[in-house]
Design a protein around this nucleic acid. Structure first.
Length: 105
DNA sequence: TCACTGACGGGGC
DNA sequence: CGCCCCGCCAGTG
């Protein structure tokens, strides 16, 4: 747990309800565009610490729910998104361009 | 040190 | 379009 991770968590906490962002755009926003994988790893860690991180709002560049298996149940990620009004079909966020939120805005 | 593993992304074709 | 290859880099054993 270092400052880089804390910055990642700061940004993820700012993602509004009903919107999603991507690992890569978050990394790029922090000036580390090549460290998208690390963002994913940080999301993985966020479960074991008692941080209040909406990790379900972070998907990959294609809008795919690649991290669903790291939640309590594989369906939880999709259910959380749908409860915020996001439509998920075949592990993929629909209207991805519309709900995408740029962390650097 | 080394090798391997990913909740990744860009570029080529 | 989709698919594949490759660079990336923190953690782990």
């Amino acid at each position: 747990m270092n400052e880089f991770y804390l910055k990642i968590y700061d940004i993820v906490r700012k993602i509004p309800q009903g919107r999603v962002s991507t690992y890569g755009s978050i990394a790029k926003c922090l000036g580390a565009s090549k460290s998208a994988r690390i963002v994913g790893y940080a999301m993985n860690l966020s479960h074991q610490y008692d941080l209040n991180i909406p990790a379900h709002r972070v998907v990959n560049r294609n809008g795919l729910l690649t991290g669903k298996h790291h939640f309590a149940t594989p369906l939880l990620m999709q259910q959380l998104l749908e409860s915020e009004g996001i439509i998920v079909k075949n592990n993929q966020v629909q209207n991805f361009e519309k709900v995408f939120w740029d962390p650097c805005q």
